[in-house]
Design a binder for these strands. Structure first.
Length: 271
DNA sequence: ACTGGCTCCTGAGGGC
DNA sequence: TGCCCTCAGGAGCCAG
């Protein structure tokens, strides 16, 4: 379940090794992802030099001079760089061949991921164009968030997970961020003060940033043959800890479904 | 304009 | 041991 820090770490690992290399071929095993993978992707990509690997939200953007390959890892997807002779694993759906030592494999058991080609600027692609700011973009400001929340009755946790409001805040880090900001996840977005939104922004940036820092330390594992970029061992304070004492020591962590998503909070220190 | 609910898919884990 | 059930989740989509 890659969240933004995992996607960014993947981006760095892939970019470091593959940028500047030329694609020699593509093999599509199972094209049935969230959107079908073009079966003739090899025709499109063969001979192209990878110019850059960028990221927008949780979408990875493989840039070529003729267009962009948009990749999303869904919730179980991962990318791995292997030598082409490495044995295929179950759920290795797409392989992009570079040279004798480098092949990029897309692995995704649940197939919520996606791999699509576009010749337009990626910012104009339907998957990208309606996305809100990145969590660290200056436009993700207290005023912005407060104004967008006016009149909204939706739970603040669902609000900050809405990619049109801000991208990259997944289910786990939404719970963690609100715990850090001491805001109850079920509080209506429109009934939160400007000051508290400033705190929420700080918390989101800190939580994602810390996860990214942990990810950076595992980057060297990127090439390990059996290693997934994986889930970072960031200390989670509430997620998955229902019934355990909160770090405040005054209450047990509760679990509640909010917006069809499992959510965790401390009833004492989050209001 | 909002909101909540549904959907894709597979593996893990619990109960018996 | 093995079967069956439920749950988990990113994010687009749809109906009310």
């Amino acid at each position: 379940m890659p969240e933004l820090p995992e996607v960014e770490t993947t981006r760095r690992g892939v970019a470091q090794i593959l940028v500047g290399r030329t694609i020699s071929g593509v093999k599509v095993g199972n094209p049935r992802l969230r959107q079908p993978v073009m079966l003739d992707l090899a025709n499109t990509l063969s001979g192209l030099v990878l110019q850059a690997v960028e990221r927008r939200s949780k979408y990875l953007l493989f840039r070529f001079h003729t267009g962009t390959l948009i990749v999303h890892l869904g919730m179980s997807g991962s990318l791995r760089i292997v030598t082409p002779d490495t044995a295929l694993r179950k759920h290795d759906h797409v392989e992009i061949f570079f040279d004798a030592l480098h092949s990029l494999r897309f692995h995704d058991p649940r197939r919520f991921g996606l791999m699509v080609w576009t010749e337009k600027p990626p910012a104009e692609h339907p998957l990208i164009q309606h996305l809100g700011p990145e969590p660290w973009d200056p436009s993700f400001s207290t005023d912005y968030l407060f104004e967008r929340a006016r009149g909204r009755k939706i739970a603040v946790k669902s609000f900050i997970m809405d990619g049109r409001i801000v991208v990259g805040v997944g289910n786990i880090y939404a719970s963690e961020s609100l715990h850090r900001a001491r805001v109850h996840p079920n509080r209506a977005a429109g009934r939160i003060s400007r000051d508290r939104y400033a705190t929420i922004i700080d918390a989101v940036q800190q939580v994602l940033g810390e996860a990214l820092d942990v990810g950076g330390t595992t980057l060297r594992d990127f090439l390990k043959s059996d290693g997934e970029p994986g889930y970072f061992a960031l200390q989670l304070k509430v997620y998955g800890r229902a019934g355990q004492p909160c770090s405040c020591g005054k209450a047990l962590i509760r679990q509640q479904v909010i917006g069809q998503r499992s959510s965790f909070y401390c009833p004492k220190c989050q209001r």
